[in-house]
Design a protein around this nucleic acid. Structure first.
Lengths: 110, 110
DNA sequence: AATCTTTATCGTAATATTGCAATCTGAAAA
DNA sequence: TTTTCAGATTGCAATATTACGATAAAGATT
């Protein structure tokens, strides 16, 4: 086997898993954080910022894009990447909900 | 190749990636959500709740535990699993910070 | 047009993940 | 003690991910 059985879970569960999985690599965390740091989102130098070869960075960007975490617009011969707020908000809400539900629950047995 | 180059990134980046990676699978999302749903955290029937074989569930639980997302206490011959609030809070804060920084930034060029 | 610059894609090797049957471990019950 | 039960571990096959060199694609520059 080796393939994830996505069809056995709800769409919501798969959606959260997809987003989390995309962030589940330090290079992609670093990309997100670099996109945050830079004021303008015309960022043609992500490759120089990361300790990885250009094809590897390109691949990570593609995965972030597929997961819906970043958007990319063609800007001349460079590409303008930036974070998709909606995706981040989804994650924030998800973990926020869990957090508040946990603190409300007094029966903390562990 | 094939191995993640964790030593090229900061501890913080690796920490977030580890947490996110652990949630990056629908079965593990389902486990977290089941632990939320059940009032008491003496949960010996996670296997029955998931569409996966017992060894597979056990492995997913192990990964969640290794990532620090859940805690497990031996309770007789069953095991009491529950969510580790701190880990969830870390994620909530992380995405919360990104979210607020993004909304403050008016230069939304994409 | 020829060249440069930037990013994507292809191909491939190394490693990791997913899933399960079989088996083991350890505590409780008979 | 023997059996039973819950859960972990082992071993293995299928698949996915990570990483990069080589190369391609496409707009910019000369």
């Amino acid at each position: 086997m080796g393939a994830t059985k996505t069809d056995h879970f709800t769409d919501k569960q798969n959606a959260i898993a997809t987003l989390a999985k995309a962030i589940g690599h330090p290079a992609r965390v670093a990309i997100i954080e670099y996109l945050m740091k830079v004021d303008t989102c015309i960022c043609g130098d992500i490759v120089n910022e990361l300790p990885l070869a250009q094809p590897t960075v390109s691949q990570h960007l593609k995965e972030l894009k597929n997961a819906g975490l970043i958007k990319g617009n063609i800007e001349g011969n460079a590409i303008c990447y930036c974070i998709d707020e909606k995706a981040i908000e989804k994650l924030q809400n998800y973990f926020g909900n869990i957090s508040t539900k946990l603190t409300n629950k007094k029966s903390n047995c562990c």
